[in-house]
């Protein structure tokens, strides 16, 4: 288990929005296919993706995700940040690839 705020303080990811740093994330899911995320990601997961648009927030919110990490230096659109603020989902950014973020998050969650 990890607090959403630790994605910034411990893993060093850039915050685009974070309304609830004390929310917890228990798992991670890496995918750029939103239907795949919808069907397979566990509740409370952090989504690791390059899909930096508003629809990603809708999917994350519907299945109860608390954080999204945008990889490869992608930055969110303005309406994506707006939607995430409304749904209290945190958005982070990094230059790291999905592979690296997945490994680092899995390690921080004690999964590897």
């Amino acid at each position: 288990m990890l607090k959403v705020g630790q994605l910034e303080t411990e893993l060093g990811y850039t915050v685009f929005t974070m309304m609830e740093p004390d929310a917890t994330t228990t798992d991670g899911y890496t995918s750029d296919l939103l239907s795949d995320v919808m069907g397979n990601a566990a509740e409370g997961s952090t989504l690791i993706t390059i899909q930096a648009h508003k629809n990603t927030v809708a999917v994350a919110s519907l299945i109860g995700m608390r954080a999204i990490i945008l990889c490869n230096g992608r930055t969110p659109t303005e309406d994506m940040v707006g939607a995430a603020m409304k749904e209290h989902i945190a958005i982070f950014g990094t230059d790291e690839s999905q592979f690296t973020v997945s490994y680092r998050l899995a390690k921080a969650l004690g999964k590897v």
């Binding site: 750029d32 296919l33 939103l34 239907s35 795949d36 919808m38 069907g39 993706t49 899909q51 648009h53 629809n55 990603t56």
Partner: peptide, 15 residues
């Protein structure tokens, strides 16, 4: 490119 059209929609609904 938006992350849709992965061919999982209807199978997801059914499942």
């Amino acid at each position: 490119s938006l992350g849709f059209g992965a061919g999982m929609g209807l199978p997801n609904v059914k499942s």
